[in-house]
Simulated assay, not measured.
Amino acid sequence: MLENLNYKHLHYFWVVASEGSIAKAAEKLCITPQTISGQLSLLEERVGQALFERVGRRLRLTDTGRLVLRYADEIFELGKELSHVLRGAPLVGASQFIISAASALPKTIVYKIIEPALKLEKEVSLVCKEGPVESILGELAIHEVDMVLTDTPLSSNFSVRAYNHYLGKSGLTFFAAKKIKQSLSGPFPECLHQAPILLPTKQYAIRQLFDKWSNDNSIFPKINGQYDDSALMKAFGQAGFGVFFMPTIIEEEVCKSFDVEIIGRLSDIQQKFYAISAERKVTHPAVAAVCNSARDIIFR
């Protein structure tokens, strides 16, 4: 029965039909081919007929598939039109602003960046999500979020039609629990060599910059942990499992909240921050407020 049609499944079908293959659709949506295949199977079960037939390495629409595609074209075109209308239309009650942040971004910075959107004249109902970069960009591709916050700019490696909005940058401050700080010897940053350290995972731009700096300066800490989540990394740092770094612009908050001490600061490594949206020219009022405040106040 089609009464409970899942529109996410329909969207996956629409992208596969447009791209001509599951592999290309997976690249565009930043999800695995297996996920798309599973969702297509569920849609075909719901429809009760096959939507594609395989011809060589490509997929060809069946008669039913062509019928479904015509309706899908209209549905998603209307959805796009509705989205544009609502962006500028006065709404009754709070308008929803959905934002997704990369897990490794410090929550304090995420809050600082988002806060101006909550001070608009028009009331905003905020929905905050987080996850790995690839996952949250996939949500942006299918219009499930209005904006993505990350330190990794969108590039050709991500098959997503969206645009980077540079917010600003910050050097790094290195922190540790008192017992770890006392165990270090020598001046900073040489004291980091062979010292226990906690790092973001390699999917994040700041980790790649740190690794390059480490190699260039022949300073090789002992990696005691790698984390997707910045809050978890700080918790382990607070417990004395190793040195960790955060953007210098929030060093005061980190010391106060986690009872850790500053070891030193690096300006050689600059962590950059980006808002990514589906709009080249920002028109969404909440996204505009976020970008303007970040550039003019937070990272000035």
Rank of each mutant, 00 (worst) to 15 (best):
M1T: 13
N4M: 08
N6T: 06
H9V: 00
S21Y: 08
A25Q: 02
E27A: 12
T32C: 01
Q34I: 08
T35V: 12
Q39N: 13
L42V: 08
E45Q: 15
F52Y: 03
E53C: 00
T64Y: 00
V68T: 05
D73N: 14
F76W: 09
G79T: 04
L82K: 09
L82C: 04
S83D: 10
A89S: 10
P90R: 10
V92S: 11
G93R: 10
Q96T: 15
F97M: 11
I98S: 15
A101S: 15
A102R: 05
Y111V: 13
A117C: 11
V127W: 11
G131Q: 03
E134D: 06
G138A: 00
E139A: 04
M147G: 06
S155T: 15
S155F: 13
S156K: 13
N157L: 11
F158Q: 12
F175K: 08
A176D: 05
S185H: 13
F188R: 03
F188I: 02
E190V: 07
E190Y: 12
C191M: 05
Y204L: 01
A205Y: 10
F210G: 02
N217I: 02
N217V: 01
P221I: 15
P221E: 14
K222C: 09
I223G: 05
D228Y: 14
D228H: 14
L232G: 00
A239V: 06
V243P: 12
M246S: 15
I249L: 12
V254L: 05
C255I: 09
S257Q: 12
V260G: 10
I262C: 12
A278L: 09
H284V: 12
N292V: 07
